[in-house]
Design a protein around this nucleic acid. Structure first.
Length: 822
RNA sequence: GGGGGCGUAGCCCAAUUGGCAGAGGCAGGGCGCUUAAACCGCCUCCAGUGAGGGUUCGAGUCCCUUCGCCCCUACCA
């Protein structure tokens, strides 16, 4: 489309100037009130896509707006630059991930700059910076020293495509890898873990105070998955000195326990298994061990699958409520990693147990009276207890208490809280990540790399084939080292850290990237933390945000970040996704609509306005055939401002009249609307308010009567000021042309509405009879209820409508409405 | 299976504590400008809020049922 000004030229001019003049550089001792505006630092995947554009448009708007509100705004940028795609691409291209990554970083940085987003570039950090790595490793070693990092063999999720271990969170619900889509296998490996479970309770409790979207808070709560119950012993029938320990949240249903189940990984399984049953038990265990998580859970809906998935061990345990012997089964619907890895089974009150019992012909005894007409199998709701001895007649809550007391007395029962949350597996068998800074010495075992030898950097000449081993393990020069303690031969750890480790503390380095040798100076960082506004995609609702929360709490506790708040992100905003043909627009799906071409046509400003205007920022955006036209419409809005600022076709008159006052009123009401819109993330309505104002000014200025000059100037200047955080280039350009001797529009204070002008002279009050509008009155906005009522009843149209009937009731809601009921 | 969200005009979306369903944009139509077209300017058509019920003087908004779409989660005992 033809533009009335050279968009490319204007935008390039201002981008260069913002970079040069350091306006958005901010010092840690800035006396102004502080505001930390942070957009999640991106993985460098190349030129920006629409999701980035949307993200950084919002982030830049916040930063510029808060700056105009007089704050010292910390708005940094960096890169989450370690990660699999770079490594895979490098393998494919036969190059080095660093070269690949840095090329992508340059591309992304360039398209972010072309968006007109401004940052304090002095503070740029990226994960693969050796300095940043040094601090990441220092933190790892501090965790190790504090007992928060430990090594353990564990069944892990092995992705055959990525040739690496995945965190539970990186395995999709269907058992495939979130990145490559391969079916994930189970494998036992020695791995590093972070003890995030130590913080489960605090991570859960602190959610309450966060100003985060409710759904993100809910997701985190569910992920942590706290459940209260009782852990107790089921004595073995053949040897009462031994017991199977189980966990339950429903001790009240104890009289209904008709069997017990252990997980295939349970340590007592071999002991419990009798010779007669050994073959079938071993078959089940083998199947469970080799099966992927998906295969293991896939058959949960079919009875056929259930039968295959359980086997009798041949042993019995004693139900501590009934003292009856009940059989012990092994089944893969019980998880070895949760609770005690064994359960008491209550088929009448638990659906899974019910399904299993039905297939295996096990006894089902109801202990809770279901509501009348209940048709299902297992009933897990509240109800009066039955078949339950001393619990009969009690409801669930009361029975739980009594049952727990009984178990405490007779079965070593203790009340116990369990969490779904597992410790964080941080080892990755990859090259392009931060090396874990430990060595393995034959004499001294696990030895931390001494501080003065950090960072441990990977050598460049590493083969990254698909052998399945950590690439670093194959590099003799790196792998073979000497023990820092005694000089004995030692092996370096060959695994690298999960990239979520980097993103768990980068925001702290942003706040103080200047202090050498340590990750940051807590005194400096304390000036900015917590982040006032964090902006990112909903896809990080669980992992990144949970890990970052854990890191900060741990860093405070182990003395690296003393005095800092324990929560990193005070306010969080999660933007909607960009969707094309019903699925998320992403590089991996190959359905991108590149933003670059819009820079040439509608410009960065036009694209920004589109993203702000298309709908609520939290909503998804559907990219359709019509989107092109919507974007052009946004550019047209900017063009109209440009033309008006040239005073094209504008007529002037000399004395301020009523129409001028009306324009001023509209202007000041717009100040309110836009400010409110920006404060409550209603950017679409803020843009709409500006469009409305433009229509008002433009219509008046081009009317035959014309407009008074100072009125036009005030309105136009206000319009430009309010628009500045949204369309920074055009507004800066026009402001400079109009007021060449004044500071930039971006250095102006945010406009304040004049209350006198905002107040309406009169408002229209609707008068209804039985809910139907019968009259409209112009009234004073402060009219009282009585006056509103009598004015309504005195109106000729109303008197006519009532036709002499006496109202039974009059509802007056001044100054909007009076409803007369007859 | 569980949890959350959303259905308003042909389309994207607005609508304080429940108070006249329409702020803005796109598309469509008309007129003006123009030799003509584009651009531009002005005007304009269009829904009773997915469906059904309830509460209320009054429901897009609150409650129940139901349909459709989206997101998260999924043997956690």
């Amino acid at each position: 489309m033809a533009r009335p000004f050279n968009v490319t030229e204007v935008e390039a001019k201002w981008q260069a100037r913002w970079l040069d003049d350091g306006t958005y550089e901010v010092d840690n001792d800035d006396p102004r009130e502080r505001f930390y505006a942070l957009t999640m630092y991106p993985y460098p995947s190349g030129t920006a896509h629409q999701g980035h554009i949307r993200n950084y448009t919002f982030g830049d708007l916040v930063a510029r707006y808060q700056t105009m509100r007089g704050k010292a705004v910390l708005s940094p940028f960096g890169f989450d630059s370690f990660g699999l795609p770079a490594e895979n691409a490098a393998i494919k291209a036969g190059s080095h991930p660093r070269l690949f990554t840095e090329a992508r970083m340059a591309e992304l940085k360039s398209s972010i700059r072309r968006l007109g987003a401004v940052y304090d570039w002095r503070r740029e950090v990226y994960s693969h910076d050796p300095q940043f790595m040094k601090y990441s490793q220092q933190i790892f070693l501090a965790f190790l020293k504090a007992g928060l990092a430990y090594r353990a063999e564990a069944p892990v999720n092995w992705c055959p495509g990525c040739m690496t271990v995945l965190a539970n969170e990186q395995v999709l619900a269907d058992g495939t890898c979130e990145r490559s889509g391969d079916l994930v296998e189970r494998k036992n490996l020695e791995q590093w873990f972070f003890k995030i479970t130590d913080y489960a309770e605090e991570l859960l409790n602190d959610i309450d105070d966060l100003e985060w979207p409710e759904r993100v808070k809910t997701m985190q709560r569910n992920w942590i998955g706290r459940s209260e119950g009782v852990e107790f012993d089921l004595a073995l029938a053949y040897d009462a000195t031994k017991a199977l320990r189980v966990f339950t949240t429903r001790p009240d249903t104890g009289f209904g326990v008709t069997y017990a189940v252990v997980a295939p990984e349970h340590p007592m399984l071999a002991e419990l298994t009798t010779d007669d049953e050994r073959a079938s038990v071993e078959a089940l265990v083998e199947r469970a061990a080799s099966a992927s998580e998906m295969e293991r859970t896939a058959s949960s809906d079919s009875g056929d699958g259930l039968e295959k998935r359980g086997a009798f061990t041949g042993s019995f345990v004693v139900n501590p409520f009934t003292n009856e012997q009940v059989p012990v089964y092994v089944a893969d619907y019980v998880l070895g990693t949760y609770g005690t890895g064994a359960i008491m089974a209550v088929p009448a009150e638990d659906e899974r147990d019910h399904a299993f019992a039905t297939v295996h012909g096990l006894k089902i005894v109801r202990t809770t009276q279901p509501p009348e007409g209940f048709a299902g199998g297992a009933y897990s709701g509240d109800g009066v207890h039955m078949n339950s001895g001393f619990l009969d007649g009690l409801n669930v809550a009361d029975a739980k208490v009594k049952a727990a007391e009984h178990l405490a007395k007779h079965a070593n029962g203790i009340t116990k809280v369990n969490y779904r949350l597992r410790d964080w597996l941080v080892s990755r068998q990859r090259f392009w990540g931060c090396p874990i800074p430990v060595v393995y010495c034959e004499v001294h075992g696990i030895v931390p790399v001494p501080a003065d030898q950090l960072p441990v950097l990977a050598p460049d000449d590493v083969t990254m084939d698909k052998s399945g081993l950590s690439p670093l393990a194959t590099h003799e020069g790196f792998r073979n080292t000497v023990c820092p303690i005694g000089g004995e031969p030692a092996l370096r750890e060959a695994d690298t850290m999960d990239t979520f480790c980097d993103s768990s503390w980068y925001f702290l380095r942003f706040a103080d990237p200047f202090t050498p040798d340590v990750a940051f100076d807590p005194v400096q960082v304390a000036k900015w933390m917590p982040v006032d506004q964090y902006i990112g995609g909903i896809e990080h609702a669980i992992l990144h945000l949970l890990y970052a929360r854990f890191y900060l709490k741990a860093l405070v506790d182990i003395g690296i970040a003393p005095g800092l708040p324990r929560e990193p992100f005070r306010r969080l905003f999660t933007q909607g996704m960009i969707r094309l043909d019903g699925s998320k627009m992403s590089k991996s799906k190959g359905n991108l609509v590149a933003p670059e071409r819009y820079y040439e046509t509608v410009g960065a400003d036009g694209l920004r306005i589109f993203h702000l205007f298309v709908g609520p920022p939290a909503d998804n955006v559907d990219w359709t055939d019509q989107t092109e036209e919507l974007i052009e419409g946004c550019a047209r809005f900017l063009d109209r401002i440009y033309r008006l600022a040239q005073y094209d076709e504008v007529k002037f008159h000399d004395v301020v009249d009523d129409t001028d006052v009306a324009v001023r009123r509209a202007t000041h009401r717009t100040i309110l609307k836009v400010t409110e819109g920006l404060d409550r993330w209603s950017y679409n309505t803020a843009v709409a308010a500006l469009m409305e104002l433009l229509n008002t000014i433009s219509k008046t200025a081009r009317s035959d009567e014309g407009i008074e000059r100072a009125t036009l100037d005030e309105s136009l200047d206000t319009l430009l000021t309010l628009l500045a955080p949204m369309a920074p280039h055009l507004t800066a350009e026009l402001w400079e042309a109009r007021r060449p001797n004044d500071p930039s529009v971006h250095l102006q204070s945010w406009p304040v509405a004049d209350p006198e002008l905002v107040r309406e002279a009169t408002v229209t009050m609707v008068v209804q009879v039985n809910g139907k509008v019968r009259a409209r009155l112009e009234v004073d906005p402060t009219i009282s209820e009585d006056d509103a009522q009598s004015a309504a009843l005195a109106d000729a149209a109303i008197i006519g409508a009532l036709a002499g009937v006496t109202p039974t009731r009059v509802v007056a809601r001044p100054p909007r409405l009076v409803n007369i009921i007859v």
